[in-house]
Computed example of a mutant assay.
Amino acid sequence: MDLRLADKVVVITGAAKGMGAAITLAFAAEGARLVLSGRDMAAIEPVAEAARGMGRSVITVACDITDPVQTEALAAAARDAFGRIDVLVNVAGGTGPMGETAWSTSTEAFEEIVRLNVTGCFNTMKAVLPVMVEQCYGKIVNVGGTFGMRGRAGRMAYSASKWGLRGVTKSTALEAGPHNINVNYVAPGMVEGPRFRTKVIPDVMDRHGVSEAEAVARHADEYALRRITQDEDVANACLFFASDVSRQITGADLAVDGGWAHL
């Protein structure tokens, strides 16, 4: 199926690593023009070069999404370079405190992850939406998480931030819909990669006194398909929501988790 993403202008936050890199290269493979942003520009550049090697037009913009001045500058750079903004994919985010109860989580840690995962996405959406409204076209894909759909003990702050992002997504979908703008939410489950291996799995190993292999198996056994989500699975969901194949879908939650959030 032709997703008709060739020459679409796609802004991707958190494009440097893991899911962000996979999403970037998936859009590059579809022929999109790319605006890649993040705080670590050295990490973004190899991804940008890989996309350029596929013949794509790419610009990179340093941006801390928690700073609205920087997100406005990101939108301006995209428009200056390409004349429009067709798609925003919000990948940038963080994990917050792990293994903490609601009563042991510090206010500072709670506010920090909400600021990154909710306010940061609000900032980028606020920056690009006037452009999308003016052109009467746009797609926004917010990458959240299944802990924002079912909750998770020991991950209260992260879960709260992703529930909040769902609310931002759904309300904005209602507001932007009359302007032919779709706003949707992709919710990965546990995704194989550095964050999973260096943060999530060590926490499980410490709490349950199990090996790394046993910790991974514990997670896989929770899912109907008995396997951990891969970066490419999330990228494919983002392509779907960014394309006109999903033209009649907005305000939706799409769990990419092998069967956990809804089962």
Results as ranks from 00 to 15, higher is better:
residue 147 F to G: 09
residue 198 T to S: 15
residue 194 P to H: 09
residue 192 E to F: 07
residue 170 K to E: 15
residue 160 A to M: 11
residue 129 L to F: 14
residue 186 V to F: 05
residue 130 P to G: 11
residue 157 A to Q: 08
residue 180 N to D: 13
residue 168 V to E: 00
residue 222 E to I: 09
residue 210 V to H: 05
residue 137 Y to K: 10
residue 135 Q to Y: 06
residue 187 A to D: 08
residue 237 A to E: 00
residue 230 Q to F: 00
residue 145 G to H: 08
residue 138 G to E: 06
residue 139 K to E: 07
residue 239 L to T: 05
residue 153 A to C: 05
residue 161 S to V: 05
residue 152 R to P: 00
residue 240 F to S: 03
residue 201 I to M: 09
residue 230 Q to L: 10
residue 158 Y to F: 14
residue 242 A to S: 15
residue 163 W to E: 00
residue 229 T to F: 03
residue 227 R to H: 13
residue 246 S to I: 06
residue 238 C to S: 06
residue 210 V to I: 15
residue 144 G to K: 00
residue 149 M to G: 00
residue 157 A to E: 10
residue 197 R to N: 15
residue 247 R to Y: 11
residue 185 Y to F: 11
residue 197 R to E: 15
residue 180 N to R: 13
residue 143 V to C: 05
residue 179 H to L: 09
residue 209 G to L: 03
residue 129 L to D: 08
residue 234 V to C: 05
residue 164 G to I: 07
residue 237 A to V: 04
residue 164 G to C: 11
residue 230 Q to D: 04
residue 244 D to L: 10
residue 204 V to Y: 11
residue 160 A to R: 06
residue 236 N to L: 13
residue 136 C to Y: 10
residue 159 S to I: 09
residue 249 I to W: 02
residue 249 I to D: 03
residue 141 V to Y: 04
residue 144 G to C: 06
residue 136 C to Q: 15
residue 244 D to C: 10
residue 215 A to V: 07
residue 126 K to N: 12
residue 196 F to L: 14
residue 225 L to S: 13
residue 221 D to C: 00
residue 231 D to Q: 13
residue 214 E to K: 08
residue 147 F to E: 12
residue 234 V to K: 01
residue 198 T to P: 00
residue 148 G to E: 07
residue 224 A to S: 14
residue 251 G to Y: 04
residue 164 G to Y: 07
residue 151 G to V: 12
residue 180 N to F: 14
residue 153 A to S: 15
residue 235 A to P: 03
residue 185 Y to E: 01
residue 217 A to P: 01
residue 130 P to F: 12
residue 232 E to F: 02
residue 201 I to A: 07
residue 172 T to Y: 04
residue 176 A to M: 03
residue 252 A to F: 04
residue 172 T to D: 02
residue 128 V to M: 06
residue 173 A to M: 05
residue 171 S to E: 11
residue 188 P to G: 06
residue 204 V to I: 15
residue 133 V to T: 13
residue 151 G to D: 13
residue 198 T to K: 12
residue 214 E to R: 06
residue 153 A to N: 08
residue 142 N to V: 01
residue 228 I to L: 14
residue 181 I to R: 04
residue 230 Q to C: 02
residue 181 I to Q: 04
residue 228 I to P: 04
residue 157 A to P: 10
residue 139 K to M: 10
residue 208 H to E: 14
residue 148 G to W: 02
residue 190 M to V: 13
residue 233 D to Q: 06
residue 234 V to S: 03
residue 228 I to E: 02
residue 158 Y to R: 07
residue 244 D to Q: 13
residue 175 E to C: 04
residue 163 W to V: 10
residue 223 Y to L: 14
residue 169 T to W: 03
residue 222 E to Q: 14
residue 154 G to V: 06
residue 228 I to Q: 01
residue 164 G to S: 09
residue 190 M to F: 14
residue 237 A to I: 04
residue 143 V to N: 01
